[in-house]
Design a binder for these strands. Structure first.
Length: 862
RNA sequence: GCGAGAGUGGCGGAACUGGUAGACGCACUGGACUUAGGAUCCAGCUCUGGCGACAGAAUGGGAGUUCAAGUCUCCCCUCUCGCACCA
């Protein structure tokens, strides 16, 4: 018998063999069905963490499984290599972002290889390489030509710490998603992608993504945020101009008593100019529009405003409405102007109460009349129209249509749809990103870089500046350029770089032909591999990355470059990896090694008892991280993989448990020992191949269990990705096999055991590939277990000839009995009624009803 | 506030279309083997009562539908995540 299970030697051995033989390389093969399995590529931050390990383990199991099922599987890996952490690290370590990035890629790649993942490394890409981003620049030019990329001056979210603009998607509760600094508003000229043109299409297709988690689809829909309503014009008094508002409640227009403009609204300054209000308005606008978004977005943020001194006219009621500027009106949504209906909108109500503005009820609820004087909150529900002229007495839902009809007839308004989604701002005042291929010429204005000049290569000799400011504008050669249109020598190159989400919006297409140099990708390769059949990654990308990728795919489709509109057919969002935290009153969070074990556990530094905190997402700040490297050293890749899959189903969060890891290791040792216990016996045997009837009574149950397990594991992996139950099924089989004595030997036994153990190895091979490969070869197979076919179950083995029937009385379990397959209902009734235990419960009572479920259960109602 | 998801033993988690609740694993308890074991093997392990056969209760709480509910319907509670002054 071979020595004990030693993962270290077998894992490095087989990893080497796999690499040398090019086992994971794939090519387009029209004869085989394709399967594109993609995991979200990592940012090369330094080393891989347990989240990566989990994500990529799940993906690797599916990739290996699909290969064994006969698919031509594309399973690539690469690096989302541009981005701010590289710059920050470069500044603090006095190195160059490129160097830092490539060194990280190197370490992380080694780690991934140690995990035994089956990537086709020939297809590796790094987005910071010119041969990658040059095509992104190329597409940018195409988009610019078609007006899909444009420049506009606008208020943008500005992070002072990062010295850059943030997309709305990168602002979380008013703070920068990266550093947590409060986000301010700043006026800048920026490049945008016109994603709002596709808002409707992106929204509609949300319902055609059956392979996506409901949750993600809902998040996308909410993010796009479509509202149906109307745009209505309000004539400004003494001025030949109108204010256009967007409202979802045109039915309440008769109740609109004042107007609120966003502080950033262009009319605000103009209306108050040279009035007594000008100073107040200016001060207010200055304060609010530049005010930190974090406070502006807070729940208890008080509604405030200032009268502009101007009035407008309600087009339906004719009422003279004071025009305010208010902090709750947002320039980015609708038209930046709100017709305020205090009786029926909570914000307007609060505002009106604060400033003593009139409240007019126009929708009366069924329960009784509302009195503006005593109302404590706005009424937003349905009801009958009042104080609305000819519309009085109409249900408000009807009035909504009627009033818009009237406004449309008078050309004072129209039906419209408004989206929450805004255009995608892609400009970053950052160094470590793909340069935007544009030129600013004093004569010609904005001039695109000629296609032949691509790529615009990011200069490597730039020194990063204090505070993270981009060095590109100061770079001696980069910014200076000749105008390609008029030849002027003093034109300037655009020094903004692109948002890194642009790179990650098409990397999956690049994987199809990573070395192609005549375009973004080889259309033939993309036609073969795309769309991605299964995409796997964290929920944190449920909105940003997935929405941008969907949009970018539409752009490519509009250009006729790809034949599909949705890039990802199925999506799996895996849960977080969590662990309990340890906390000391004095020293805060502690690493396990800073704790003395005992009852209770105490802090090594101060001896205070350590509180075992909540189970939280692994993070350095909480000191509850587990380093994959340490795990690989102690247990090996197979145990690590097994534990990640066994501890929880993939979409749920995974609670780390050191004992659980021990358990996983123990199981692998058990499998190893079991196989070696039988190795002598089965090495020269042929796996039993049926029919089942030939088997003795001893071996038949083994054969049956083997096939039941094949079915269970196949279904669990195929339909649901429930690897935890798949593994437990194999554990059951292994437990059963441990009960089969090696002595006395027989050729039947050897052949059934060969089948059983080969099955165990095949079923586990996507999960713990190294161990399985080792035993597989030991059994005499010349080729890798990866090239073996996935086992198929024998239907005959699943059929039971005897069934355990549960006997219930009044729905309560009272007894059990075994019967032959297909025993007639009549017989079952008789058997059940005469059962001794059942008799006890039905004695002296009248049997009212008997329900029989074939081969399963009988319920006697008395 | 709006939206989504989840509440099952000491713990992680099973239970596919309503049909034996607690598979599998961890922890724990007992035993075997051993110089020894924190290795391995065997057994037990939801709670309550009972030596026991057995009986009763139990899937966050409450009602309902059904011969039968962890699963379906309604109400309530708690937790997690996402969005959040969106007119």
């Amino acid at each position: 018998m071979k020595e004990k299970y030693d993962p270290k030697s077998i894992e490095s051995h087989w990893q080497e063999v796999w690499e040398r033989s090019g086992l994971f390389a794939v090519h387009e093969d029209p004869k085989k069905p394709k399967y594109y399995l993609l995991e979200m590529f990592p940012y090369p931050s330094g080393k891989i963490h347990m989240g990566h390990v989990r994500n990529y383990t799940i993906g690797d199991v599916v990739a290996r499984y699909k290969r064994m099922k006969g698919f031509n599987v594309l399973h690539p890996m690469g690096w989302d290599a541009f981005g701010m952490p590289a710059e920050n690290a470069a500044i603090s370590n006095n190195t160059h972002p490129a160097r830092w990035t490539y060194e990280n890629i190197d370490t992380m790649k080694k780690q991934l290889k140690r995990m035994g993942f089956s990537y086709d490394w020939d297809r590796e890409i790094a987005t910071c390489k010119p041969e990658y981003y040059r095509w992104e620049q190329w597409l940018f030019l195409k988009m610019y030509e078609k007006g899909m990329a444009y420049r506009k001056e606008s208020y943008v979210n500005w992070c002072e710490t990062c010295q850059t603009v943030l997309a709305n998607e990168q602002v979380e509760a008013g703070a920068c998603w990266r550093c947590g600094e409060a986000v301010r508003q700043k006026k800048l000229s920026q490049w945008f992608f016109r994603i709002t043109d596709d808002a409707e299409d992106l929204l509609v297709h949300c319902d055609r993504l059956p392979g996506w988690p409901e949750k993600v689809v809902t998040m996308q829909k909410n993010w796009i945020g479509r509202s149906h309503g109307a745009e209505i014009q309000f004539q400004i008094e003494n001025l030949d101009e109108t204010i256009v508002v967007f409202t979802t409640r045109p039915d309440t227009i008769f109740g609109a008593t004042f107007m609120c403009l966003a502080p950033e609204h262009p009319l605000v300054q103009r209306l108050s100019r040279n009035t007594a209000q000008q100073a107040d308005v200016d001060a207010f606008v200055d304060r609010v529009s530049l005010q930190e978004r974090s406070t502006r977005g807070l729940e208890r943020y008080e509604k405030e405003g200032v009268f502009t001194g101007a009035y407008c006219v309600n087009p339906m009621s004719g009422r003279r409405m004071p025009i305010y500027t208010a902090n709750f009106a947002l320039m980015e949504y609708g038209t930046g102007a709100v017709m305020s209906v205090p009786a029926h909108d909570q914000r307007d109500f609060e505002f009106a109460r604060k400033y003593g503005l009139e409240i007019v009820v126009v929708v009366q609820p069924e329960g009784g009349p509302l009195d503006p004087a005593t109302m404590t909150e706005a009424y937003a529900g349905e009801g009958m129209m009042v104080h609305s002229g000819e519309f009085d007495g109409m249900p408000n839902t009807e009035a909504m249509q009627a009033i818009v009809d009237r406004l449309e007839a008078r050309k004072m308004g129209k039906r419209t749809v408004s989206y929450r989604l805004r255009d995608w701002g892609i400009s970053r005042q950052r160094y470590w990103g793909a340069p935007i291929p544009m030129i600013h010429c004093p004569t010609c204005g904005i001039v695109p870089v000629p296609e032949s000049d691509l790529p615009i290569v990011l200069p490597e000799d730039a020194d990063l500046l204090e505070g993270g400011k981009s060095p590109l504008p100061q770079h001696p050669d980069f910014a200076k350029v000749k105008c390609p249109a008029c030849g002027r020598e003093d034109a300037r190159r655009e020094t903004d770089t692109m948002d890194t989400f642009v790179e990650s919006s098409w990397y999956f297409e690049r994987y199809c032909s990573p070395h192609y140099d005549k375009g973004m990708f080889d259309p033939k390769a993309v036609a073969y591999w795309m769309p991605v059949d299964q995409y796997i990654g964290g929920v944190e990308h449920a909105i940003l990355h997935l929405l941008y990728s969907r949009y970018y795919t539409r752009v490519l489709n509009d250009f006729g470059m790809v034949p599909y509109r949705e890039p990802f057919t199925r999506l799996l969002t895996q849960g977080m990896v969590c662990k309990e935290t340890l906390h000391c009153e004095e020293h805060g969070f502690l690493y396990p090694e800073e704790v003395v074990d005992g009852q209770p556990r105490t802090c090594k530094k101060c001896g205070r008892p350590v509180e075992i905190g909540r189970v939280e997402k692994m993070s350095k700040s909480k000191k509850n991280v587990v380093d994959p490297n340490a795990l690989l050293d102690a247990y090996g890749a197979d145990t690590t993989r097994l534990f990640c899959l066994f501890a929880a189903p993939p979409e749920r969060s995974l609670e780390w448990s050191d004992q659980g890891v021990d358990g996983a290791f123990r199981f692998l040792t058990r499998v190893w020992r079991l196989c070696w216990m039988w190795m002598e016996e089965i090495r020269s045997a042929t796996a039993f191949d049926g029919p089942m009837d030939r088997l003795s009574a001893d071996m038949k149950p083994v054969y049956q269990k083997v096939h039941v397990t094949i079915q269970k594991v196949t279904n669990d992996i195929e339909d649901r990705f429930h690897f935890n139950t798949a593994i437990s099924a194999v554990m059951e089989l292994v437990n059963l096999l441990y009960g089969v004595p090696v002595e006395p030997t027989s050729s039947e036994k050897a052949s059934v055991m060969r089948l059983a153990l080969e099955t165990v190895v095949l079923l586990l091979s996507p999960i713990v590939p190294h161990l399985c490969e080792d035993i597989w070869r030991e059994l005499g197979h010349k080729d890798s277990v990866l090239l073996a076919s996935w086992p198929v179950w024998d239907e005959a083995a699943l059929r039971k000839d005897r069934h355990l029937i549960v006997i219930q009385v009044n729905g309560k379990l009272r007894s059990r009995m075994e019967v032959e397959d297909d025993t007639e209902e009549k017989v079952i009734r008789e058997l059940a009624l005469s059962d001794e235990k059942v008799q006890k419960f039905i004695a002296g009572k009248a049997v009212r009803q008997i329900v029989v479920v074939k081969n399963k259960l009988i319920n006697i109602v008395v």
